[in-house]
């Protein structure tokens, strides 16, 4: 499993977001319109729910989704750590609430 970011307020609020290739890729990537045309590396198991779109829904089975765990580990958005500081991280670092 990937190493979890410690959200303990170690980083300064003033620190500039570092350029991040994978986050940039995430923000700029196009949405796949037809997954059946995607060629995956041979190590990757395609969705068991091939055909995927059922009643207008995109179906992804759990084993398919689990494969992404170690492939996308960067932040989901710029300013994530700052956002966490005001919400999740402050609650986790407050021992009195445990």
């Amino acid at each position: 499993t990937p190493k979890r970011e410690v959200l303990s307020g170690v980083e300064s609020l003033k620190s500039q977001p570092k350029p991040s290739a994978s986050l940039d890729s995430l923000l700029q990537a196009s949405i796949i319109s037809d997954i059946s045309k995607i060629v995956y590396p041979s190590s990757i198991k395609r969705p068991a729910t091939e055909g995927e779109i059922k009643d207008g829904k995109l179906l992804y089975d759990i084993p398919f989704l689990m494969q992404f765990q170690t492939y996308y580990t960067d932040k989901p958005a710029y300013g994530w750590d700052e956002k966490m500081k005001g919400t999740v991280a402050s609650a986790f670092s407050d021992k009195s609430s445990r």
Binding site: P2, R4, E5, L7, L23, L26, A29, I31, Y60, L65, F68, Q69, Y71, Y72, T73, D74, K75, P76, A77, W80, M84, V88, A89, F92
Partner: peptide, 14 residues
């Protein structure tokens, strides 16, 4: 997106 979900899950307390 699936990728964004993992970005969240991998960067938040368990």
């Amino acid at each position: 997106s699936v990728e964004e979900f993992w970005g969240i899950h991998n960067n938040i307390n368990a």
